[in-house]
Design a protein around this nucleic acid. Structure first.
Lengths: 261, 261
DNA sequence: TGCAAAGTCCCGAATAGTGGAACAAATGTT
DNA sequence: AACATTTGTTCCACTATTCGGGACTTTGCA
């Protein structure tokens, strides 16, 4: 089992480029892709052509830009409905957000990183870095730490391998040294706190979503800012948070969602 | 230029399998994939492994099934927001549906086939069986014919190449012989009608959505059944339909959406 | 426990991907 | 309008990668 996995073969390279193009979040020119592509010009070009041929990208030959293609869009629609917790969890999130009157995040884990799947704000609150579809590191977020804490040992080991320990604030964990003990504590407590580890002024309380066989399939958090509440204050969200996480987990148990890894 | 495009290289094969797995719409076992895979067991297995490695699929090693992976889900979220007309057009669809009190379909074209992107029904929200993400032939649907009619000659030629002329009802076009004249007429009229060509009892009126440079990026239709209305009746939807299509096109003009092909 | 079916792995042959470099097209500049 | 520069596309010999028959291992069921 490859632990790091960067690319296997042409398929890996092509998907890497696809990911890059899509991640731009807008239409891109060939040269822009080339700049971030680790492959030589000819190769990059050919791979993009292949992806375009396959309908995963579309090339606008008037503006000379690449955009996600219809085939990807179609697959996207299926994959989203089928494998993201989003559609299933959204009603629960809304109830919770209305209940606690704070922002609620739903996340899943991809290869040691947190993917924000859905987000609900009760009012039009402040904005955080999290946007649905965005990826963040796991070591510095409530949703990330709680998933790490509750996944099984093998997966956790693999996920920890991928952590970069990038320091976003003074509170960010700098290495396993401090992270591992906290994970143990989170496991004991059942919830994780983000103590301004990703963004200054932003704190959260997070609970794991456990599917069948108690495997972690995602996590849920209530997010707020230090201007409005303290770490102590947000502890009161715990019952509602855990109840909602359990409800989502119950709904999801019958369906094999991807396991956090 | 490959006209049919079934596979270029490994990447094509891998994507083909990915498409198949996702199209199942549920978790699948290896043997199920193998059944529909055109490749030998060893190859199919290796490709699925690669996709799993890449996070495009996830393998549940407890239930021994493949599901769409987190990476695909993340890419999906991006691609959907960026390249489907769905998010942008949804409010307009809802207004139109409420206005005409009938079901409204939004479609885009992928390689000569119609992809239903969004669907709104006036009364009960948007909970219908015909899941968005479904593909249908173009020759027998209002949304399909109207896109064929308005796309440029090169693209139309390519798209027509892909038509199967499968006969769903007695009214379905059986060949270019009858389809081409109708396309000319649709071009002249500005709208297309589905005269029970896909499903008996189902009729629709469809208008093209034109983006920048008047290129077809999608289409819109009002759908109803012959039990409620006649072909003559639905002509009255034309003004609202065309107005909505123009509004969506206007919104979309500044952003390079994939062109119908 | 045993056996059929499902899933995984191996390795030589040959196909398909690679990327430097030349070419072409679009864009900018004098 | 002619030239320079940047951007995008094609070619082709080389070789790393994929292919897939078949053997092996694991799983599920009787």
């Amino acid at each position: 089992m490859n632990k790091q996995v960067t690319s296997d073969g042409t398929v890996g390279k092509a998907l890497e480029l696809l990911d890059m193009v899509v991640a731009f979040g807008r239409s891109v020119r060939f040269s822009e892709v080339l700049e971030v592509s680790p492959y030589p010009k000819a190769t990059t070009h050919r791979l993009l052509q292949t992806l375009t041929n396959q309908g995963m990208l579309a090339f606008d030959d008037e503006r000379h830009v690449y955009v996600p293609g219809m085939r990807l869009v179609r697959i996207a629609r299926h994959a989203w409905n089928q494998s993201s917790l989003g559609p299933l969890a959204l009603p629960f999130l809304q109830t919770l957000a209305a209940d606690v009157k704070e922002t609620v995040h739903l996340a899943q884990m991809e290869h040691g990183r947190v993917v924000f799947v859905e987000k609900t704000t009760p009012d039009e609150g402040f904005k955080t870095m999290a946007t649905p579809g965005r990826r963040s590191p796991a070591h510095c977020t409530g949703v990330g730490k709680v998933m790490l804490a509750f996944m099984d040992d093998t997966r956790r080991a693999a996920a920890l391998e991928c952590q970069t320990y990038e320091a976003f604030t003074p509170n960010t964990h700098k290495s396993e040294k401090t992270l591992l003990p906290e994970l143990a504590q989170i496991r004991a407590e059942g919830v994780a706190f983000d103590r301004e580890e990703h963004e200054e002024g932003i704190i959260s309380i997070a609970a794991p979503i456990l599917g069948g066989s108690n495997r972690v399939i995602g996590s849920l958090s209530v997010v707020t800012s230090t201007f409005r509440m303290s770490l102590k204050d947000i502890e009161k969200f715990r019952p509602a948070l855990q109840r909602t996480a359990a409800q989502i987990g119950g709904e999801a148990a019958v369906w094999p969602y991807p396991i956090a890894q």
